[in-house]
């Protein structure tokens, strides 16, 4: 199984607190990997270390390695702009720019130097289609993204992320602000996109992890407790902590 991202002994600390402790794991290419665990276990910190979002926190200290296609993204010569292009991110709360639907999707390509209208038109249509939003918005591309529903806004954010042709998509609780119908659409989309992209999803919702992912990682107090095929983790977890977390027998 080809590996897209590999962490080696990754430790991420904020001040004196280790949010992630010695995590070594492989994220497989064109598979959906879910990261689950109780609040504060380090899920978001882990996913953010895959595109160096933690760098923005002032007192952060990162040791160990994160390899993307075999290259250490924390290496001194690694270009963060290239990294962010390769690794897109979707957040908990949909965060479209206060611009038109069209401009949201065209934003990234424009930054990367594409200005021809015909090319941008094509990119916008293609990516809105990939994000399963095209049919709902094709007749109002110039209206404000802020007028869309929450679920539509989240799919727009996915289209915006796809428009810069990433290889990996990180999703941090992508459905927690959405109703069940919008959630089902995003979940369906995650499965469809996994044909072409490597996807990592952080979720509080265990059933969502079970539904969308091929692999599941369980984190507890910053440590990787268990990692394996989702069907195995949910049917027969090997670690007692995983068993307790999944069945709600914690504390």
């Amino acid at each position: 199984m080809p590996v897209k991202i590999e962490t080696k002994d990754l430790t991420v600390s904020f001040g004196d607190v280790d949010a992630i402790k010695n995590v070594s794991m492989e994220i497989f290419t064109n598979r959906v990997t879910a990261i689950i665990g109780p609040s504060g276990c380090g899920k978001s910190t882990l996913i953010k270390s895959f595109n160096r979002m933690n760098d923005l926190v002032s007192n952060v200290k990162i040791t160990g390695q994160v390899l993307l296609d075999g290259e250490n993204i924390y290496g001194t010569n690694y270009d963060v702009v290239t990294l962010r292009k390769k690794v897109g991110m979707i957040f908990q709360k949909p965060n479209p720019f206060p611009k038109s639907i069209y401009d949201n999707v065209a934003y990234g390509p424009r930054i990367h130097g594409i200005h021809k209208k015909e090319i941008l038109d094509k990119i916008v249509e293609e990516n809105l289609k990939k994000a399963a939003l095209w049919h709902e918005v094709s007749d109002r591309l110039n209206s404000s993204a802020m007028d869309l529903s929450g679920g539509q806004q989240q799919r727009l954010c996915i289209a915006r992320a796809l428009a810069v042709e990433p290889e990996v998509i990180l999703m941090d609780e992508p459905c927690s602000a959405l109703d069940p119908i919008a959630t089902a659409k995003i979940e369906g989309l995650i499965r469809t996109l996994s044909r072409d992209y490597t996807i990592v999803v952080v979720t509080h919702n265990m059933q969502q992890a079970a539904r969308v992912s091929d692999y599941t990682a369980f984190l507890y107090l910053g440590k990787l407790i268990e990692y394996g095929l989702t069907k195995d983790v949910f049917e027969n977890p090997q670690n007692d902590l995983t068993e307790k977390y999944l069945t709600g027998k914690f504390g």
Binding site: A210, F234, E235, L246, T247
Partner: peptide, 9 residues
């Protein structure tokens, strides 16, 4: 309850 792990087994 959508049971998993030992509950599901």
């Amino acid at each position: 309850y959508q049971p998993v792990a030992s509950d599901l087994r």
